[in-house]
Nucleic acid binder design. Structure first.
Lengths: 202, 202
DNA sequence: CGACGGTATTGAACGAGGGTCAATAGCCCT
DNA sequence: AGGGCTATTGACCCTCGTTCAATACCGTCG
């Protein structure tokens, strides 16, 4: 049951551990990813993990960061396309990613919400990249900016996330319809900002 | 340092522990709410907690459920108002709640995302109540239902949540403006569903 | 008003899991 | 082939959740 000691280069070992960590998220949540389990799966001792990561938190952060980098890379739109097509293909790629990596993706979203400030930052950075892509396309999409634009785009992103998660678990419309809905919701929300705000009661 | 033993009725004790749990969330995240800390603050031994709750998870769930019940109660709209006013006053109450209970609120949202299935259920139930209120008002708001309505209302709720959290941390518009934006976004999003979906590339 | 009994409460003990470190042994280099 | 650098180990400690038999508070009844 005990493995022979195998000596790898630091880079190789680190990569192995991160890759393994991400793949384990397919069947486990982040806080079920214990040092014990990882060491067992990697065929190393628990102690070794601490040569590569300061503690479990930092390891978790590194794993989540790797997963989000992967997600961002896979959803990068082709810059030669026009803004509207970038939006819809970006949404399609995002949807595909969530569909085929549901558990790791949920770990990202969950981790975001966990108490850990750094995990939350990783998540917010990732969302920032996604919304940044939109923000950059605003002019080309025929939309204008206001004080609330950033806020609303972030809100729209949250809506996309929630909707996609719900849809993957229970598809109530076709994939193309969903993409169409979400794409249409973006200008709809931003236009809502331009109509005067109604004063609230009292 | 050790307290004299105090014997309370089960109901009183349970209430005390739940109330204390909720109030401790004001300065701590859910997973920083340890048995040790709670026992210390309550002036009881750790063991006692296990007469009232099966384990820590169940205690956490009970605390979170209490916090969400509180939130739902405080944001219940006056049924004698018309639908649009219910919407805006409901949003205003929600905003007020998040403002004055930011940390406990974040614990709810965070817990939702944590690995715990039951915490997620509590969160989804709470959101379900909020969106149910909207769903019930749809006709009165002059909106129509389609296959995607539920999905989009959930999405809109996620947008509200995200936007409100961002806004509380960095108010970039006035409170009334924010409420106006969010209220306007609801019909905007639902109308977007009615325009035909654009087919996606390829 | 005092003892008595039910049960709320305790605290010591256990186990699981994170974190540390001096000792060990693979692999590359000459 | 041997030696040295350092990747790797495994035993140890500590924190924290959890259990349970023993204890003592408080309402009740004589």
């Amino acid at each position: 049951m005990s493995h022979p000691r195998v000596r790898l280069s630091p880079d190789t070992r680190r990569e192995q551990l991160l890759d393994l960590g991400v793949s384990l998220l397919a069947t486990r949540s982040l806080d079920e990813l214990s040092i014990d389990l990882l060491a067992e799966e990697a065929g190393i001792s628990r102690g070794l993990l601490y040569h590569y990561f300061r503690n479990k938190q930092e390891f978790h952060r590194a794993v989540v960061r790797r997963a989000t980098d992967d997600m961002l890379e896979r959803t990068t739109p082709d810059p030669s396309l026009d803004a509207l097509t970038r939006l819809t293909t970006g949404l399609a790629a995002y949807l595909d990613y969530v569909e085929s990596n549901f558990e790791p993706f949920m770990s990202l979203v969950r981790g975001a919400a966990s108490g850990d400030r750094f995990l939350r930052e990783i998540y917010e950075d990732a969302r920032g990249v996604l919304t940044g892509r939109i923000l950059d396309s605003i002019g080309e999409l025929g939309l204008t900016r206001s004080a609330a634009t950033r806020l609303l785009i972030d809100g729209w992103a949250a809506m996309v996330e929630e909707t996609v998660i719900s849809w993957v678990q229970e598809p109530s419309v076709s994939k193309d319809q969903l993409i169409g809905l979400l794409a249409a919701a973006l200008p709809a929300v931003l236009h809502a900002a331009e109509s005067p705000a109604r004063p609230v009661g009292a």
